[in-house]
Amino acid sequence: MKRPNILVIAGHDPSGGAGIQADIEAAAAHGVHAATVISLLTCQDTHNVYGVKPVASDFFAQCLDAVVADMHIDAVKLGVIASAEHVAIIARLMDRLGDTPLVIDPVLVAAGGGTLADDTVGQALQDTLFERACAITPNAREARALCAGEIDLDRCGEALSERTPNVLITGGDEGGVEVVNRRYARGRAMQRYQWPRIDGVFHGSGCTLASAVAARIALGHSPDEALQHAQQYTWETLERAFAAGGGQRIPARIVTGTP
């Protein structure tokens, strides 16, 4: 038997709430295999990030080469990337992978406020990888950071959609009784998705969403279908979220009956 493979490039979270473990669980919940290459190690818990240690660039590149030499990759998902040098390595990889779909979750800062990527990473992603992506999924804070601090999310979405065909700005970190996600696509009007807000703060929701998008695309779904389904799936994981530690709750990504 075979199943689709997604290549996930992201960081390791020792609490198991975000990063590589979240990606693996979200992919598995959709019947997709996640091959994983770690970009950085973090010292963190369910409260915050306390330290970051990037993987050496030569070893990082060696790991990517080994995976793609052995496996057919149906989609690539990027989470936190350690440096602009890592971004350049990934760009060369995508040249080799041709039309393989790419989903980017441009993780810059942890939910607790700790810094995950240096200031050059966001710009490097925009300069070299956004144009290759079929979708990017920043939260509101990340969208503003990518747009030099622009406050208006519509302006952010419009600016980012000039670089990549599908932008989903998630609104979980904004106020309001509902979570409003905004989808921007070239040549189309902005589309709003509204979800009932679930009380609490969650650890790994962005990883869950982006990996679900990549998994659905690997299964053959269009970006429209993948973005819609991934939001529904992520909302359900938050509704089932549990407390593994004393901080943010963790989405329950794998349960009996998950499609």
Score class of each variant (00 low, 15 high):
residue 4 P to N: 11
residue 7 L to W: 11
residue 7 L to D: 06
residue 9 I to R: 06
residue 15 S to R: 08
residue 15 S to V: 07
residue 17 G to T: 15
residue 20 I to Q: 03
residue 20 I to M: 08
residue 21 Q to R: 05
residue 21 Q to A: 02
residue 23 D to M: 00
residue 26 A to V: 11
residue 30 H to D: 04
residue 31 G to R: 04
residue 32 V to G: 02
residue 32 V to W: 08
residue 33 H to M: 03
residue 33 H to E: 04
residue 37 V to R: 06
residue 37 V to K: 02
residue 39 S to C: 12
residue 40 L to N: 01
residue 44 Q to N: 12
residue 46 T to L: 04
residue 49 V to L: 13
residue 52 V to G: 07
residue 53 K to Y: 15
residue 66 A to E: 13
residue 67 V to A: 07
residue 68 V to G: 12
residue 70 D to A: 13
residue 71 M to N: 03
residue 72 H to L: 07
residue 78 L to S: 06
residue 83 S to Y: 09
residue 85 E to F: 05
residue 86 H to L: 06
residue 87 V to A: 10
residue 88 A to Y: 06
residue 89 I to G: 14
residue 90 I to V: 04
residue 95 D to A: 03
residue 96 R to V: 01
residue 97 L to N: 03
residue 102 L to S: 03
residue 108 L to I: 15
residue 115 T to H: 15
residue 115 T to G: 10
residue 118 D to Q: 01
residue 119 D to N: 12
residue 123 Q to K: 15
residue 126 Q to P: 01
residue 127 D to H: 10
residue 130 F to C: 00
residue 133 A to R: 03
residue 143 A to K: 05
residue 143 A to T: 09
residue 143 A to R: 08
residue 147 C to S: 09
residue 150 E to V: 14
residue 150 E to P: 04
residue 162 E to N: 07
residue 164 T to Q: 05
residue 168 L to V: 06
residue 169 I to V: 03
residue 171 G to S: 12
residue 172 G to H: 00
residue 176 G to V: 07
residue 178 E to W: 06
residue 181 N to M: 00
residue 184 Y to V: 04
residue 187 G to S: 08
residue 188 R to L: 14
residue 189 A to R: 15
residue 193 Y to Q: 14
residue 194 Q to L: 14
residue 194 Q to V: 15
residue 195 W to P: 07
residue 196 P to G: 08
residue 197 R to F: 06
residue 201 V to Y: 01
residue 202 F to Q: 11
residue 204 G to S: 01
residue 207 C to Y: 11
residue 208 T to P: 02
residue 209 L to V: 07
residue 210 A to N: 11
residue 211 S to E: 08
residue 211 S to V: 01
residue 212 A to H: 13
residue 214 A to E: 11
residue 216 R to W: 08
residue 216 R to Y: 08
residue 217 I to H: 14
residue 217 I to Q: 15
residue 219 L to Y: 00
residue 223 P to M: 04
residue 224 D to N: 14
residue 227 L to Q: 07
residue 230 A to K: 06
residue 234 T to S: 06
residue 243 A to K: 14
residue 245 G to V: 07
residue 252 A to V: 14
residue 253 R to W: 09
residue 257 G to L: 13
residue 257 G to E: 08
